[in-house]
């Protein structure tokens, strides 16, 4: 399992390094530069030190967006992971039915993110949407463009609809990798379905579930296009997550300095979680690789 040790392998990595450096390092440096200055226009800028960071860190709207974001990402995990595992357990093990399930499940994952938003606008509009009409038909007031709670629920529903299939796919891959002998042994011992799940399937899925949790957390942390199309961050700031808030600042108001400071804070949060993700992945790798 030991790899060959050879620093010349660096040459193979150089192209990737260059292209990612252009798209990541230089822009990040620029963000750092912007974050310490007040920029009025081309060539007109003043050094302001850490003022923007101070302003952004004590900004109520940032706290709101951050709170929204963590609540959202947390709920995403709480709903999608158990649901995904349950669906994966219910899926047929092989044959054309399994293939059909996989294909149908994968469909939402391949839809452009802004189209996901569009689908849900059309689906939930109180006048033309199936869901909107159905809910209003039940006598409940539901309008995701006006009521903050409804908007939240709709975005959440959309997210669950969009990404639970990913958790299913991962959990299913984990389940398929368990040798049949384990189940035979469990059957001979007369283990209940719950015991089989708790002591065989769940431990064996630890690796894929770690990946699922981290991927879902990270990706929901960057969510932009779907809620942007569906609610535009509104009503008010109810569904304004970090990316939406940032784009509003950067493009909408063109506050380069504060937007850059905010970007850096956002990036640092992501960096921390990526690192935790990476550590977890490596432990998964050493624990039970294949």
């Amino acid at each position: 399992m030991d790899k060959w040790e050879d620093n010349r392998a660096w040459w193979l990595v150089v192209p990737v390094f260059l292209i990612v450096a252009i798209s990541a390092i230089i822009p990040l440096m620029t963000v750092v530069n912007y974050s310490v200055q007040d920029i009025f226009g081309p060539g007109q800028r003043v050094f302001v030190g850490t003022e923007w960071f101070k302003e952004v860190l004590t900004d109520r709207r940032l706290h709101e967006a951050l709170g929204n974001q963590f609540l959202f990402s947390g709920l995403v995990l709480l709903i999608e992971i158990p649901l995904g595992v349950a669906i994966a357990l219910a899926m047929p093990k092989q044959g054309w039915r399994a293939s059909l399930c996989l294909v149908l499940l994968a469909l939402p994952l391949l839809i452009p993110w802004n189209v996901i938003g569009t689908i849900w606008i059309i689906f939930t509009r109180p006048d033309i949407g199936l869901m909107g009409v159905a809910i209003n038909g039940l006598g409940l007031e539901f309008d995701h463009t006006a009521a903050p709670l409804d908007a939240w629920v709709t975005v959440m529903l959309m997210e669950v609809w969009h990404w639970t299939p990913l958790v299913v796919l991962l959990a299913y891959a984990g389940l398929r990798a368990i040798p049949e002998a384990y189940f035979q042994a469990a059957r001979i011992d007369g283990a209940s379905a719950w015991a089989t799940f708790r002591y065989i399937q769940l431990p064996k899925m630890r690796g894929v579930l770690t990946i699922a949790v981290l991927l879902r957390f990270m990706d929901s942390f960057l969510i932009y296009a779907e809620p942007f199309v569906l609610t535009g961050g509104g009503p008010g700031n109810a569904t304004t997550f970090l990316s939406i808030h940032l784009v509003k600042m950067a493009v909408g108001q063109f506050d380069l300095g504060p937007a850059a400071a905010f970007s850096l804070i956002y990036f640092l949060i992501v960096l921390l979680f990526s690192w935790l993700f990476y550590q977890a992945l490596q432990n998964v790798g050493t624990g039970d690789k294949r």
Partner: peptide, 15 residues
């Protein structure tokens, strides 16, 4: 490389 996959595109928008 992973951090770039995880980084929010919004951060890189301005630069």
């Amino acid at each position: 490389l992973l951090t770039n996959r995880m980084a929010p595109p919004a951060v890189f928008l301005l630069p």
